[in-house]
Every structure is written in C-alpha cells, then in structure tokens.
Write a protein that binds this DNA or RNA. Structure first.
Lengths: 142, 142
DNA sequence: ATGAAAGTGTAGCCGTGGCTACACTTGCTG
DNA sequence: CAGCAAGTGTAGCCACGGCTACACTTTCAT
C-alpha cells in the first residue's frame, strides 16, 4: 500500500475496532497470567501480592479480580486467595506461551533484553494467531 | 529468564505501569495520524470523517479532538474542521514512520498482509525507540 | 487470649472513551 | 431566499480502571 493510500473506510474502522477490543481483554490476560505464576511459584495468589506486582493499589486489584470472576476466569472466597478456573488456566497458559514467543522474536531481531520484556508487555495483547504462527515459523528457521 | 522465574517486583510493576501509560497516548497517536492523512489526502479533516474512519460516533471523535486541543496537538474552530499544530504534525509523522516499520517487519517475518496491518494497529503504540532501531537494522540487513 | 499488624473488602471519587439524544449551524438546492 | 439535509456541538449516560479512606478479618506474638 503506497504511503498516502488510505484503506477503505470500513476496513480501517474494523481494524481500529479490533485494536480497541483487544485492549479490553489485555487487563484480564495480565491478571490471569500473573495469578497463574503466583499459584505456581508461591502456592497462593493474594490480592496484595497481585497489586504489588502490577504496581496498582490493592483496591484496584480487587476490582479487577471481581471482573475475572464475572467473566468466569477466576474464583475467590473472601480472605482466602484467588484461584483460576479451567478457562482461566487455559487463558493464562496461552498468554504465557504468547509472551515468551513475542520476547524471543524481539530478541532474535536484535532488541535488547530489557526493552524486549518491556515492549512485549504491551505488544503481546495485539498479536493475532496468524502473526503468532509466523513468529513460530521464524524462530524455527533461525 | 527461566519460565517460572518471576521478575523482581519493582521491575515488573514498572513494566506494567509503562504499558498502561503507553495506552493513554495511543488514542492521541491514532487521531493525529488519521488527521494528517485526511489533511494530506482530502485537504481537510472533518469530525464526521474522522469518526467514520475510526468506527466511532461523531460525538466520541469530537471529545477526542477536544483532548488533542488540550494537549496542544490540534486546533479547531467550530464548524471549520480540524488542523494539527507543529507538535501534532511531528507526532503524526513519527507515528506514520513507526507504523510502516512495524508492518514491514511483520511482513518480513511472514505475517500475511492483512493480519500485519491489523496487528500493527495495536502493536505500534508499544514499540520503544530501542525496538524501533532494531527493526530498522533488521530490515536493512535483509 | 488478646491486641496490633497485615491483609481484605467496600464506598466513593475521578478521568477516559464509548454511546444516544437533542439542539444548533452551514450550505446547498430548488 | 427559504428550507432542508448534512454536519457539528453539547449534555448526560455507562463501564472501566485508577485512586484514597475507612471498616472489617485473620494471624501471629506476646
């Protein structure tokens, strides 16, 4: 596409719309992945730990956890920590794999490790399956 | 970093924080780029056109334009279209270059064109200067 | 066994970015 | 030149994701 070609209106609108909705699931993905990590590493996931890791207040974390529950991704009983449902664990695993893949591709392209980790944190939520597949192929053929 | 190593807390919190703040500028970037395209292509940028391209209501577009004005990126007089300030044009140009670079890298990695355009729409807002530089180098050495 | 510290939960505020509904310009057309 | 269609702007709603402040459990040490 030449520089000053605008894509057809509906195409462009669809793209922006998808990017917007990807954004709305990004937060759930981050929480799911982090909770899975904490469960694996510490045996439990407490709201305060989650909040500290994400750099938000515990109240913010608790509200997000409520949303995870609403979406059927997590369960939690008052004062008893947070757990993931099967759906939540599947999501976390998908996110974990995708995150590593994005970081590995960035590093393979010559991005310094710390920048790769940082950028992957934002990029990962916008990587489609098609792109993910291409990333896999690229890393294999290295 | 081994799979189940968690990054140190402050590091991880900082990463998430940066990813969050990148998000807040993403919308401005999209508007600035689109307005620049419309000005270049049609000679004028009207709120309704902007809204159609982005797939949002005209009211939403107008609110975003108000924010662009607040941030010193755009100017607009009632019923007279939207224009970019110097800062706005510089931003738009930076965004345009970055967008192309991201798309080109994705395509070079084997991502199908349409998916590359779609994913770039979300990814571009999270690409640091270091990553951008690596992308450039990668494309040159192709 | 109790009391303080740590953690948890709730309430209520803010700004953002969506939306619809309604009012008002503008500008073209007949 | 009158009137209507298209475009513009404003108001007010919602959900989200931040926050602080405050209340309530739990837990652990004395």
């Amino acid at each position: 596409m030449a520089p000053s070609d605008l894509p057809a209106e509906p195409t462009q609108a669809r793209r922006f719309g998808k990017a917007r909705s990807a954004q709305s699931t990004a937060l759930l993905e981050d929480y799911a992945e982090l909770i899975a990590d904490l469960l694996a590493g510490e045996g439990e996931a407490r709201p305060t730990d989650i909040a500290r890791r994400l750099g938000v207040s515990h109240a913010t974390a608790i509200k997000a956890i409520a949303r995870l529950k609403r979406e059927g991704l997590a369960t939690a009983r008052p004062y008893r920590g947070v757990f993931l449902t099967d759906a939540g664990m599947r999501l976390a695993e998908r996110v974990r794999v995708r995150h590593r893949l994005v970081v590995d591709v960035l590093v393979a392209l010559g991005v310094p490790a710390e920048a790769a980790e940082q950028d992957a944190e934002g990029i990962e939520h916008h990587v489609s399956d098609a792109t993910l597949a291409a990333f896999s192929r690229f890393l294999e053929h290295l």
